[in-house]
């Protein structure tokens, strides 16, 4: 009995060290699976207000860059306004605006907090339930695709970004509509990977990659990146390509939430298929 006490006494520092490491590891595992995206923690509230303060403060240094981004986008939007086009045929003007169905609506949000150097990266935005945010909503920036909303709080929501090991995005090439699924290998925050192009696909360096219609989360044709390199993997008969992402995740501030207007209807219909299986 005394020997046990003597052992604990002698190695008390080692024991305390091991206990603290186990405790840290437990907190880490819990945070990875659950806490990272939930808002129930007591500390979350004042932590976010602290983050918002820092964001406001550091934002001043990026104003010029953000202005340029927004200005570029405005220019692009102005150039596609209807009055920039003139029709050669009279009948085209017969297409009435009210025969078009609105499928997506966008509204702006700000990124309060972001990570981009980890294996799984998140964004926290300053819009939540009160603003009509729902889980599964798409998020884009002025430059391209950002991610998908995961958990929604009253005033804030978390976004799984492209830079997340579980994120999959349906994409296609603009030039010839070959499609592939994009994911992230966890190395470089400016580079994504598409590994399932068919081996006969015609891919060239510099080809633009955009979102595909197979995913209803994003409207088709939202820019994703350009092909940086590609090579044939003869073992699985696929072409693997690296994509330079358009979105600069290190300087992300203004984002847009993509609301799918008929989301509920699509979800209900899709559930019917699930039931039938």
């Amino acid at each position: 009995m005394f020997q046990i006490f003597a052992f604990f006494r002698k190695n008390s520092i080692e024991i305390l060290f091991v206990i603290l490491q186990i405790l840290a590891f437990a907190i880490l595992v819990q945070s990875k699976s659950f806490h990272q995206a939930k808002f129930s923690a007591v500390t979350a509230k004042w932590m976010y207000s602290l983050h918002e303060k820092r964001e406001k403060w550091s934002n001043y240094f990026q104003l010029a860059h953000q202005n340029r981004q927004l200005q570029n986008e405005n220019a692009r939007l102005r150039s596609v306004l209807m009055n920039n086009y003139s029709s050669d045929l009279a009948v085209y003007s017969q297409v009435a605006n009210d025969s078009l169905r609105v499928q997506y609506r966008m509204f702006p949000a700000r990124a309060v907090q972001r990570t981009y150097r980890k294996n799984n990266n998140y964004l926290v935005i300053d819009k939540g339930l009160r603003h009509g945010v729902y889980s599964g909503m798409g998020v884009i920036s002025t430059e391209g695709v950002v991610g998908v909303v995961k958990d929604v709080g009253e005033n804030y929501a978390t976004v799984i970004t492209l830079l997340h090991s579980k994120f999959r995005l349906s994409t296609r090439l603009v030039r010839n509509t070959f499609f592939g699924t994009m994911l992230w290998d966890g190395r470089d925050f400016r580079t994504g990977a598409i590994s399932d192009f068919p081996s006969h696909a015609d891919i060239q360096i510099g080809d633009t990659v955009v979102t595909d219609t197979r995913s209803a989360i994003f409207p088709a044709g939202i820019p994703v990146g350009v092909i940086k390199s590609h090579q044939l993997n003869s073992a699985i008969d696929n072409i693997e390509a690296e994509v330079r992402l358009f979105t600069d995740f290190s300087a992300l501030y203004h984002v847009y939430l993509v609301e799918e207007v008929e989301y509920e209807e699509r979800r209900l219909i899709e559930e019917l298929i699930e039931d039938e299986r």
Binding site: L16, F17, L20, L23, A24, L28, M47, Q113, K118
Partner: peptide
């Protein structure tokens, strides 16, 4: 000092929302 290190790291973790990697590193 070990306990102090753990909580110092944990405060940094809470601020950076990084789980407990700073706590673990500081204890080490």
């Amino acid at each position: 000092l070990l306990i102090l290190g753990f909580f110092t790291g944990l405060i940094v973790d809470m601020m950076e929302r990084s789980g407990a990697i700073h706590a673990s590193a500081t204890v080490m």
